[in-house]
Design a protein around this nucleic acid. Sequence first.
DNA 1: AACAAAATCGAAAACGTTTTCGTATAAATC
DNA 2: GATTTATACGAAAACGTTTTCGATTTTGTT
Lengths: 342, 342
Amino acid sequence: MKPVTLKEIAEQLNISVTTVSKALKDYPDVSKKTRGLVRELAKTLNYKPNTFAVNLRTKESKTIGLVIPVIVHHFFSSVIKGIISQAEKKGYLVIILQSNESYELEKKQIDLLLSQRVDGIIISLANGTADFSHLNEVISQKKPLVMFDKIAKIVKCSKVIIDDRKAAYLATQHLVDIGCKRIAHFRGALLPQNSIDRFLGYKKALLDNNLPYDPSLVYICECGDMSFEEGKKNAKQLLEDHDDVDGIFINTDLVAIGAMTEFNKLGVKIPEDISIVGFSNWFMSSVISPTLTTIDQPGFKMGKTAFKQLYKEIKAIKNNKPKTPKIITLETALVKRESTKK
Amino acid sequence: MKPVTLKEIAEQLNISVTTVSKALKDYPDVSKKTRGLVRELAKTLNYKPNTFAVNLRTKESKTIGLVIPVIVHHFFSSVIKGIISQAEKKGYLVIILQSNESYELEKKQIDLLLSQRVDGIIISLANGTADFSHLNEVISQKKPLVMFDKIAKIVKCSKVIIDDRKAAYLATQHLVDIGCKRIAHFRGALLPQNSIDRFLGYKKALLDNNLPYDPSLVYICECGDMSFEEGKKNAKQLLEDHDDVDGIFINTDLVAIGAMTEFNKLGVKIPEDISIVGFSNWFMSSVISPTLTTIDQPGFKMGKTAFKQLYKEIKAIKNNKPKTPKIITLETALVKRESTKK
DNA sequence: AACAAAATCGAAAACGTTTTCGTATAAATC
DNA sequence: GATTTATACGAAAACGTTTTCGATTTTGTT
């Protein structure tokens, strides 16, 4: 009934707990014979070390925490998958918490993970996060921290990102290349670095092509749970505000799909009347009609990379060998589809 | 540098560790004064109980395990969200593992969770799972186990499901109601109970409407990572095999969307030539063209319900009060959209 | 003042593991 | 045969908490 312990194995074999423990962990100072006996008995009794005791003793839990803004989300669930699959290879478990795009909640979740004493934390920031004391707390506790996608440049930790500015530039340039002259932008929330960078890439592409930058062509979406609705709303507003727009670069696929739905309803033809480029390459984008040109954002790889980096830092800290934060930039690509086919 | 312990608080106040512990946990046998002092010092020192020690002592980790076949999946990620949000309310953390639709992996993950000594496990079975010894192992260790969606009737544990047979019946009946005479079915893998039930519901609806059941109209998809491709492949095959089909009830939205994509490519009009009903109500289904009629499967609620049930059983076992397994059936609804609009 | 009852505290064991360090036995060396 | 050197084992402390139970002090009662 009760789980088997080292003590019971020791008693049955008439040896000490110490020796049993050593035998199971391949210590050199235990004879081949007793090691064999211990191993055998442990197997027949189905011995499983008590993680609680091991954790207490070793001060590590082989568990990491992951905090993300949303879960039901193609990009983020891809990242989760990447992290979990990589963590599994190294014998780590992953505790997932969501911030719901709320700073308060994010702070609470970090606290929770710290008091849970996870071995490291991976996070993508909530839109509302402007204060970083909770993250600095993690760092000052010498716990490895890796940020991805929605990062804060100011926090001194490793980061896994894409070159948002470059990707946005590419997307906008593509719209220019196919002949768009009046290009709008549905940007993300104000705070997140990546939504800023995408905006800057958009702006730079316009200027490099001698197209005027018109702030009234930039619309904001929070990109939270309501992304789709926001896309619809902005699309409608855009039509009311401007009748000459022939291209839009949109911060997120889901918003883009909302916009396309609205345009479709209002009789605006895509790509004939307006060309659209999204961002992230959600699976959905390849099956809607017209299919959506977008930037491929490698979620799965980002997850894997983030864990790999975290793992390195966990090892490094364990060996008392510091590690300077590293910024890893993954490649993206423009995926051309029907929404920009002239 | 080192985390604060009860001992340090005790030494600073010149009292015993016992009293500090009691003061922090509102034991009645500690005076108001000392409790105040302890509380205050604990706060200023930012004391956080060492979870490892607490776990070891109390034999519970306030952590549960979740095993699902896939993560990047609208339904499953909704369930994850439901479980996590409910677990949070009760102070539980969730460790997520994926089985990748593989029995071997599923077994390994369960083992992992057991050796991790989680307080309970929630699982949706892999397609390949036909042996249930790993699940019975969980039960025989008196660890609460709740299955959802893809369940095994034979395993004696609580389950959260929908009435798949009824839902499938409803879906098929709808096709009949709009005038379909020759209705195909893309079913799921052979083993999962829900794919069996959906098939049975389909079959019964045909017979109840005096339509012949033709086995050659039933196609199989594994519904794993390749769902979309499977849908395309089956659609193509169906057209080659039969030229008189005017309706299809499809096991999963993603497969249905694959099929629709293929039909679209081949010039088959939906719903004019063939009407389609999917299953699950993925968000995607509401934005593709034509929008997909489907069965709404309440993932978020399923997750919440599954955790609630698990929580009840964790409490029950703690109080040495057994609990007979409970089967909870959630409501579904047919969502009529363009793919069945005649 | 004597006693009972209540209030307050602490010693100690326990949870199960890991690891250091010492000791005893066996093997090797001269 | 005496000494060194491997080899094999175990005692014990430590990780930080919870909880039982006994001891002491204070309060209340007569």
